[in-house]
Design a protein around this nucleic acid. Sequence first.
DNA 1: GCTTTTTCTTGATTTGAGTCAACGAATTTT
DNA 2: AAAATTCGTTGACTCAAATCAAGAAAAAGC
Lengths: 188, 188
Amino acid sequence: MNEVRETLSKLVRLEEEEWLVLASCLHEESLPKKSPLLKEGEICTFIAFVSTGAFRYYFLKDGIEKVTSFFFSKDFVSDYSSFLSEKPSMHYIESISTSVVYKLYKKDLMLLYDKYKNIEKLGRLIAENLFLSVDKRLNAFLYLSPEERYKELMNRNPNLSQQVPQYMIASYLGVEPETISRIRKRNS
Amino acid sequence: MNEVRETLSKLVRLEEEEWLVLASCLHEESLPKKSPLLKEGEICTFIAFVSTGAFRYYFLKDGIEKVTSFFFSKDFVSDYSSFLSEKPSMHYIESISTSVVYKLYKKDLMLLYDKYKNIEKLGRLIAENLFLSVDKRLNAFLYLSPEERYKELMNRNPNLSQQVPQYMIASYLGVEPETISRIRKRNS
DNA sequence: GCTTTTTCTTGATTTGAGTCAACGAATTTT
DNA sequence: AAAATTCGTTGACTCAAATCAAGAAAAAGC
């Protein structure tokens, strides 16, 4: 729980009371490997802080899993689009390994937003950060070739291939596993 | 100026005082056709409300203009990434037609955020909305073929081709102008 | 109006990634 | 440890979009 506080404190300085009431809204949940946190068709009603473990965020296109994101320790995992719009999610979120998360439900968060100015601010900062990360990812698709995307991803996250299988990385980069294989061969 | 208020009022209910102080921070600016609002290398210090006119948001890749977005009347135009991160922009923002905007500078906005809870909330809602739109666009690249992207864009914005030349639409969809030409031929 | 420039279309060719398929390598299961 | 399943590599082939190039059409300028 303290990791949550630490992570949040990098964004905003919360009053003691604000933290306590926020903490009282956090629900701990443990998941074994390959457990669903969210399924297609559900409305995502939570933001979850990843304490330990890892998650993948994917959707099915013609029965094939397309990975859109990964979430690791200290990340906030959610289908933020579904969370905001309250529309059914098109995605699955599934644990890659044994995981512990702290869930914060939207109905609680909305009350906190209204009551506590610093939590409202926290909400803005979270939204801004998420904007920055989607924007960066969109730019990678607009600006870069698959090979450039792969190199940049590996540069910024050198141990990713130890954490997730290569076919998920391929999917994340919007290419087929064979393409990653060939990129690796070319650059070795 | 009243259009600004109307647009904002759809997001949050501002107190009279909040609106007045916000309005006092808006700077009107008129631009002839093809004028820059932002250039590559500059830090984007503003969010501008488009009163009349249209803008294109692009970057140069090997000297070739790649259009990332369009902004029309009632949109907020900014390099929001640069605005948030305070890093130099990689983009140009240029008027497509004669335009009038109301600029709100970051230094002013930050003070407003601190002082007025509803403006802080407005900031969150703007960030959330921008997140949703980038996320949607990213999904279009992840899920859809160029042809599907084109059809969807035209569906949602039937008069876009009257407002901007086709080569900019091509660029926006991440394809070459010839491809749009061929898609149109196929579907006629 | 005509001229010039910009934008759009069409064809021929190239190319990078996808698809299909087969086969090793590595994990997991029992 | 052996068997089974999953994962990664490689090759042959296909295909959709990029590239190159030449004109046609439309818009802007005079």
